[in-house]
Every structure is written in structure tokens, then in C-alpha cells.
């Protein structure tokens, strides 16, 4: 016959004591932006900390997937390069007027392109994406933490941006199914709404 051990008051005390150890405050985990790891984390989180940026990056992937190959891969190849160029302009201090408006407009136009299922020639899509990439890159470059490790910051920044595009492409692949097309276009509409909200200062 199986016996079941009943927890005693003693075992509860021991459990409570161990649990309390985990609640004791230790040294705070500050946010170092120096060193290799700090630079990577800082760079990786930078594109992920703004809804306007996230919306536009995902929209690039969505639109690419909607347009199909080769646009599906061309747009995510163009975007990081041009964005890094814009980032470089921001880092060295070259001014770019209307950056925030450009970023908000990128959400609006890219979102609408997906929602309305626009299919321009591939070079037109690449130019549109490239122009907006400069605004996004410039904003990131200008807001760059001063103490960041250059290489690891750049690696983190580019990988995070690429992953956002990939998530957009993954969502966009739903267009293989009829219901998926509706979902993707609705996603585009949502991104356009986010863009409008940023454009008119609601977010």
C-alpha cells in the first residue's frame, strides 16, 4: 500500500525559510551600456523599445511576404543596409528634418500598402522601404547611448531589426490560405492605425 507523506509544520518552516532567502535584496542589476555584452543588449533592445519602429519593421516583412519572392527577401536585404546608413548619419550628427514624422508616415504608408494589397513594381517598393529606413536609422543613431561598444551594439541592433522583419515575413506567409490573407491585410490596417496615432500625437 502506498503511503503519502503529510507535510508537517517543520517542513513548511523550512520551505518558508528557503523562500525568504530568494526575497532578500541583492545588488541591483543596473543597466550597463558599456562593454561587449552591454553593447549587444543595448543595441538589441533599441529597435524593440518603440512601437512605431516595431510596427514599421513588421510591416516591411508583411509587405514583402505579400508581394512574394523576390520582394519578400529583397526588402529585408535593403532595409538593414539603408537603415544602418541612416544610423551612421545620426551617429556622426548629420541633421535630418522631420525624422519623427517620417517614422510615423512609414507606419501609415507601409501599413496601408499591406491593407490595400498594393503591388507596385519591385524597385518602387524597394525605394519606398529604403527612404523610410533612413528615418528609422537616423532616429536610432541619434538616440544611441554614448558608452555603447560599437561592434556589439551594431550586431545587436542589426539582428533585432532582422528578427522583426522575419516575424513580419512569418506572419505574411499566412497569405497562402484565404483566411490568412484577410488576417494579414487586417494586420496592415492595424499598423496603419498605429502610424496615424503617432502622426497625430495620440501615442
Amino acid at each position: 500500500m502506498k503511503t503519502r507523506q503529510i507535510p508537517t509544520a517543520d517542513s513548511f518552516q523550512r520551505f518558508a525559510l528557503i523562500a525568504l532567502v530568494f526575497l532578500v535584496p541583492s545588488v541591483a542589476s543596473a543597466h550597463p551600456e558599456t562593454g561587449g555584452i552591454g553593447g549587444f543588449v543595448s543595441g538589441f533592445l533599441h529597435p524593440l523599445t518603440g512601437l512605431d519602429h516595431i510596427a514599421a519593421m513588421v510591416a516591411v516583412g508583411l509587405w514583402g511576404a505579400y508581394l512574394g519572392a523576390p520582394a519578400m527577401w529583397l526588402l529585408p536585404v535593403v532595409f538593414p543596409m539603408v537603415m544602418a546608413f541612416g544610423g551612421a548619419l545620426g551617429i556622426v550628427g548629420v541633421p535630418l528634418p522631420g525624422t519623427e514624422t517620417g517614422i510615423a508616415l512609414s507606419g501609415v504608408l507601409l501599413g496601408l500598402a499591406v491593407a490595400l494589397a498594393l503591388r507596385p513594381p519591385i524597385w518602387v517598393a524597394a525605394v519606398i522601404v529604403g527612404v523610410f529606413a533612413i528615418f528609422h536609422g537616423h532616429a536610432h543613431g541619434t538616440e544611441l547611448p554614448h558608452a555603447a561598444n560599437a561592434f556589439t551594439y551594431a550586431v545587436g541592433f542589426v539582428i533585432a531589426t532582422g528578427l522583426l522583419h522575419l516575424s513580419g515575413i512569418a506572419l505574411g506567409l499566412l497569405t497562402r490560405w484565404p483566411w490568412g490573407t484577410a488576417v494579414v491585410r487586417a494586420g496592415g490596417g492595424l499598423i496603419a492605425c498605429v502610424g496615424f496615432a503617432f502622426l497625430f500625437g495620440y501615442l
Binding site: 543596409m81 537603415m83 532582422g162
Partner: peptide
């Protein structure tokens, strides 16, 4: 393209 992007950013850091 990621290598190009990282290169652009590193060049900018070096210029700064």
C-alpha cells in the same frame, strides 16, 4: 546585408 549594416555603423562610430 547585415555585415554591410554593421560595417556602416562601425564606420560611423570610428568617425565620431
Amino acid at each position: 546585408s547585415w555585415i554591410v549594416a554593421i560595417g556602416f555603423l562601425m564606420l560611423a562610430f570610428a568617425l565620431k
